[in-house]
Simulated scan of single mutants.
Amino acid sequence: MKKEEKIKVGISVGDLNGIGSEIILKTFEDSRMLEFCTPVIFASIKTMSFFKKHFNSEVNLHGINEGDPIVEGKINVFNVWKENVTIEFGKEDQNIGTYAIKSLEKATQKLKDDNIDVLITAPINKHNIQSETFNFPGHTNYLEKVLGGNSLMFMVTDHLKVGLLTDHVPVKDVPAHITEQLITTKVDTIYRSLVKDFKINKPRIAVLGINPHAGDNGVIGNEDDTVLRPTLLKIKESGKLVYGPYSADSFFGSNNYKNFDAVVASYHDQGLIPFKTITFGQGVNYTAGLHKVRTSPDHGTAYEIAGKGEADESSFKEAVFTAIQIFRNRNEYADISKNPLKKASRKA
């Protein structure tokens, strides 16, 4: 990428009845955003103009169609559909779910084809996106299939990064999913991401236990002793600075997380509850391990405030900043790989 080129930020609009379009418009009402990126919203100029009028937004939207150039200095709206869409804020609607998928699929294809550089996904409703042709529990699984790689939900801020061994898995099924292969793959994905995406050469990673008190020597379940602990030992013997399993209940409250570059939780709520408690509004959901860069805000559709103009765009804006920085870091890492003498400039 030429240095003078601004990074093309693709944006899927998510659930149109939620807060996605509001936080997108609020983010780019700050004209300074266009100084370092070129946004491309995948929706339609008609739909985005409706939101602009509803929220009294002063952004200038520039509609483009297939084959048109993306215009730097403009908020580009790629017309994925032409028809009018009926918006009912706060309502779960199966038809609206189809538009969320149309936006996601077109944006992902453009990302895969290098027409855009990174992808930011506004929140979807995981229920109304389901259909005969789209049967994924969320963005992450779909993106892994289309873009390739070993995807991992990685919740990140500057001072806290939390990855998950299992994400959208029922709690009762978690132990069965956590195998030596899964642990090894996920830890390796996080390790590589910290090095390539966040410029940390020798990352320190903490892993939380599966059971309360990490099993308490088998008194509260044996998975930590039979699966997790021996696997972490093997990983550590390979040279990675990986520690644990730690008892999850006291790990964050004691500020122990500050001693590590990343924390690996065994299941969704074990990692996301403390992460969102500590960072809510500033956190970013990053899909590590893909061949392309995708981020999203750390919240959902927020139907309860949709259309009211009350949505906070902070997390979405952070998702844009994070995606841009990761894209730059990856380019720098690729450059360093070709020229090892540049390694000294990266964070130890």
Rank of each mutant, 00 (worst) to 15 (best):
I101E: 01
T98E: 12
G97M: 04
M153A: 13
N84M: 08
D93L: 00
I129H: 00
Y99L: 06
K91P: 03
G138E: 09
V85H: 07
F136N: 01
K110T: 11
S151R: 01
L152C: 15
M153H: 10
V118E: 05
F89Y: 11
T140F: 08
K102V: 06
H127F: 14
G149I: 10
M153Q: 12
N125P: 06
H127Y: 13
G148M: 12
L143F: 09
E105D: 05
F134H: 03
K112V: 07
L143T: 06
V85Q: 10
I96K: 00
K106V: 15
L111T: 05
F89H: 05
L143K: 06
K126S: 06
D113C: 09
T140V: 13
G148N: 13
L111Y: 04
K110H: 15
H127Q: 10
A100E: 00
V146G: 10
N84T: 12
P123K: 11
E132M: 03
I124G: 08
G138D: 13
E88S: 12
T133A: 07
K91D: 03
Q94V: 04
D113Q: 14
I116Y: 06
E132G: 11
N135E: 01
Y99G: 01
S103L: 01
I120K: 03
L147W: 11
T98W: 02
L104H: 06
